[in-house]
Amino acid sequence: MQAIMEKTTKTSSYFLIEKTLRNFSKSTLPTREHVLRRLINLRLEDNLTVNESIFRVVGELVNIWSCLGVVTKLKTAVKHDVAKFYTEYLNIKKNKFDNNGKRRELRESKFKSTFPLLFDIVVDPMNVVELSMDAFITENTKTFFESLFVDASNYKNFLEIDPSRWINNQNYLRAEAIVKKIIVVNDTAERAISMATKLNEKVTTSETEKQMVFQLVEAHQKVFPYLASKNDIVKNFNKI
C-alpha cells in the first residue's frame, strides 16, 4: 500500500502536465507538450541532469525531423530552443505560489495554450544561405547514396577520391545524372507535414485515441503492404 501511495503521489506531482513521456512516437511529430513531458521523464524518472536531458531530447528531435528529409537547425540552435522552453517552464513552476492568483493563472494558461504547437526545428528557408555544408549532412545522408546505387561500394568509390577527379569517375557521373532529374521536394514535405497535422486534429483530440489510430494504420500496412481492394481487406480482416 505504501509503495502504491508513493507512486501515485509522484505521478500527481507533475506541474501543468498529467504524465511524462517515455519515448517520442514514431508516427507523429513532437509538440511542445511532448517535449516537456519527455524532458520531465528524463529528469525525474531517469534521474538525468538538466543538461543530459536536454542533450538527449535534442538528439531525438533532430533524428525525427531529419527522417522527413527536411533540413533542421544546427544542434546548438535546437539545444538553445529546448533549454529556453524548459527554463520558461521552470520559471512558471517557481512562481506557482505567486500571491497574485489571476496573474499566476494567466501566465500558466498562456504557457499551456502553446502545448499543441509542433516543436518546430526546421531551419528558416531565409537563413539557408548562411549555413555551412555540414548543416546539410546527417547520419541519414548515406541513405541518399544507397538509394542511387544497388552496390554501396559504387558511391564509396568516388567519395574516397579527390573531388577534382570526380568528373572522370563513372560512378560520380551516374549519380550526377540521376540527381539532376530529381524534383525538389521541400514544398511537398511541408505540405505533407501540414496535412498530417490537420488530419491529426480532425480525427481526434485525445492523445490515447491518436495512438490507437496510428497502431491500427501500422497493423494495416503490415497486412496490406500493397494497394488492397475491398475483397482483400474483408478476406484478411481477422489478421489486423
Rank of each mutant, 00 (worst) to 15 (best):
D151P: 03
K75P: 08
E88H: 07
V122K: 06
P116Q: 07
K96D: 08
Y155E: 07
W166S: 04
E160G: 10
V122A: 03
N99Q: 09
L117F: 03
F136I: 09
P116L: 05
V128D: 00
S113F: 01
I167N: 10
D81H: 01
T141G: 11
D134M: 09
L148R: 01
E160V: 06
H80S: 10
N100W: 01
V150H: 12
D162V: 06
Y89V: 01
R107I: 03
S113D: 13
V122R: 10
Y86E: 10
Y155D: 09
N168T: 13
P125R: 10
E139R: 11
E160P: 00
I161W: 01
L118A: 03
W166V: 08
K110L: 14
T141R: 09
L118D: 04
K110W: 10
N95F: 06
W166M: 05
V150C: 10
R104D: 04
E130H: 14
L131M: 12
G101L: 11
K75C: 12
L118E: 06
D162L: 04
L131D: 04
F119T: 04
F149P: 02
T114W: 00
A83P: 00
D124Y: 01
L131P: 07
R103C: 08
K102P: 04
D98V: 02
S147R: 10
G101N: 11
I167G: 07
T143Y: 10
D120S: 05
G101R: 13
V82S: 08
N140I: 12
S147M: 09
K112A: 15
D124S: 03
L106P: 02
